[in-house]
Design a binder for these strands. Structure first.
Lengths: 117, 117
DNA sequence: CTGACGTTCAACCAAGGGGTTGACAATTGC
DNA sequence: GCAATTGTCAACCCCTTGGTTGAACGTCAG
């Protein structure tokens, strides 16, 4: 599970981390303290979640005095949609081909049900 | 980790399972045996992977004699892209707004260093 | 200087994940 | 009927993960 895509999918598999991403997208940069406030969870736990997101490339942390503002990085999100959409499209194309094939058949050989004209 | 989106992301966090999805998308339905052949891994392990994909709603298994053909279900992929794209778009819109804001400013007020007093 | 603040690091724990092997169930072919 | 084929279930092992607490670090305010 060392590749970027695996880390990204794993990162978003956690509801808390998805919520963090959602809030960063909606409200913009925020500090761990601000981000963790809504959760019934220690700040250390939030820090760990942010680390996971960072190692997945979904988030970057800078240093500003004693604060570490967190920023959402959209790049990896693109990678993910690219992956998903590729195979979703392939599937749909295969189905489409299969449909035309079935439609072109001589209205016989029903696999489960028939619908010829 | 009980919700569908969490299960789906977790399912695709594993390279083997992503490969299974990729091959199902490219080649269409296949049996566990066929799917597992390329991997240096027991058939039981493949079966587990397929179960994870099934519980995520990414795949369905039917029964045909002693075979259990596996089919890729594209629906959940849509859910995932919908989630990701929403926040990617929000992020980009926020950046765009920020850019116009900065561009509209009177070319002063440096954020990191200052010399005015 | 000192103390409060914001954050991370380290050690620990319970639970889950990915793999194994062994046993079992169901279907097919001879 | 019997044996081979196809696949799942169950128990187990090891490593990772999400959470905890306690300590430490750097920074800002008085």
């Amino acid at each position: 599970m060392t590749d970027q895509l695996s880390r990204a999918f794993a990162a978003l598999a956690d509801p808390t981390r998805r919520d963090l991403v959602a809030r960063l997208a909606a409200d913009g940069d925020a500090t761990p303290g601000e981000l963790g406030a809504p959760y019934a969870m220690s700040l250390q736990a939030v820090s760990k979640h942010l680390k996971v997101l960072e190692e997945a490339g979904l988030v970057s942390r800078s240093v500003d005095g004693r604060r570490r503002p967190v920023r959402l990085e959209a790049g990896v999100l693109d990678l993910m949609t690219a992956w998903i959409e590729r195979y979703r499209r392939e599937t749909e194309e295969r189905y489409a081909r299969l449909d035309t094939l079935l439609a072109a058949m001589p209205a016989a050989q029903p696999t489960q049900e028939e619908s010829a004209s």
